[in-house]
Design a binder for these strands. Sequence first.
RNA 1: GCGCCUCUAGCUCAAUGGCAGAGCAGCGGGCUUUUAACCCGUUGGUUCAGGGUUCGACCCCCUGGGGGCGCACCA
Length: 570
Amino acid sequence: MSHGFRLSGHRNCPTPTAQSPENRQIRASDANNSKELPSETNGGRYDAVSMIGGNEESLPTDGTATAPDGEQHTGSGLQAERARRSAQIDDIRAAGGEPYPYRFDRSDSLSEIRSRHSDLKAGSDTDDRVSVAGRVMLARDSGKLIFLNIRDRSDEIQLFVSKAVIGDDGFANVKSLDLGDWVGVTGNIMTTRKGELSVRVTECQLLSKAVRPLPDKWHGLSDVDTRFRQRYADLIVNDDARRHFEIRHAIISSFRQTLAGEGFIEVETPVLHVEAGGAHARPFVTHHNTLDMQLYLRIALELHLKRLIVGGMERVFEIGRIFRNEGISTRHNPEFTMMELYQAFADWTDVMDITERLITNAARDAIGSTMLSIRDENVDLADPWPRIQMIDAASEAIGTEIHPSMPRDALTDIATKNDVRVAPQWLPGKIIEAIFEAHCEADIVRPTFITGHPVDISPLSRVHRNDPCLTERFELFVDGRELANGYSELNDPVEQRARFEDEQSAKEAGDLERGTVDEDYLRALEYGMPPTGGLGIGMDRVAMLIAGVDSIREVVLFPTLRPEVMTDES
RNA sequence: GCGCCUCUAGCUCAAUGGCAGAGCAGCGGGCUUUUAACCCGUUGGUUCAGGGUUCGACCCCCUGGGGGCGCACCA
């Protein structure tokens, strides 16, 4: 850690400056900012020179800076830049200022100001005095006039800083701001000659000093590794990154609204499971110390939620993180967010309907339209979504009729002729699914329900009322990706036990993703579960669809990555 | 896990076997209506790491590491 910076005196209490008279002044002005006092708007409480407390103590002007560790740094480079800014912090403190004040009274968000003054003509002045806060994103210095662009969560605005208005000391302090610093300013709304909406700054307070420089102001951050590892920097400089997560938020919010409107109750069920059931996937294993027992992170929400249907809750849903110990790709993150719902007295057709409503509403709420462009095809989510049987799609793709009632050997032959490798333990339904995945899945562009999955790959689904080899199950595919999975829920405890036992023997035969017999779940079913429709939607993939991105990492804030090797230069 | 691609200044990118460069950011100077401001000057490099080939390596080869994409895995 030869280049490690330690700000002196800030690890101990009291700090060396805590006893100084200047510091007591700062404390007093902090009190002026505190919530307990009557909150008058503005009122000149922000000293125009509060950054260095009125003292004309100036920064080194020869381009060198002394880091707190005493090492001299010249020129640029990350370490030199951090040293220069750290030295600025020390100077502010030495002059009795506070580079990291406690709070700031903001009168408006930037978007509020922008909408209030949307019709202001070029070259206008107003009586609208505001206090706004944001991060300095751009700066243009023309001698006795400085233009800064600051940004808050809602928007950006220009600060118009005139030496004649703010005074020499205040002007020098604004000049010493770096891109990335947070500031709070007070002033009147105006427009420049070119019509740019601005705040004519009379007071400027540093709210937080950035010690590390921002990525390129124009190109932003494009190195994907850095973007994901330093998501904070990505969010600061990349508009798209912020937009993707706004969309994600709007989608989840929209789902909650749609579900609340249809009488669903949001619940939370355990993440730590004794048995990881409800899906075919390899789980993460963990351990509880006091109970001294092995636990699994959940791979699905299903079995707990259906226990609640047994309990009579009728309509429940959960939006929660699930974990699957499998490969990572543009479509898979080891932890991801699933929405599952269960509705008593409904069957799979009701569930397909609500799937369309949820996703169409989400698009409308998140991007204001149901029109999407998928692989250069214009898709209106509001159009009805086709419903195609899996066996029909697969049969058509290979030009041969297939059905799970056919002898396994015949299906194996057909699969092999169509370049699908068949594993020895696969049952007929699994072979059909493999043919579908190899020959149909990737070609599906617009939202399409694939229905009627074979019984042997659907241990929790109810048998199709018209075909004993199939189930009343569907999966939703869009752009070659599976987004949702739902079915008429199997509620016969005797049949469910038989299906679980088939799962267990497959697992014991070496198929690690298969399930086990969940005795407590069977006990629940014995109390009687009403006819029920259930649904699971991968929220990350819905967000990918609506945001129009090809990688799940664009809609997961902190995707799973290998640990970074930290160096002095990081 | 396998294959292909990639890693150069804080950021974005050049340099294809012959002196490691530019723009932005930074630093110094100028400019009172700019807006990716502009103008003049200027600092900054373990070219991911280690090894090899060569008179000479960012460049070619080997090993390792990070990342991306594809495959595999993944109802």
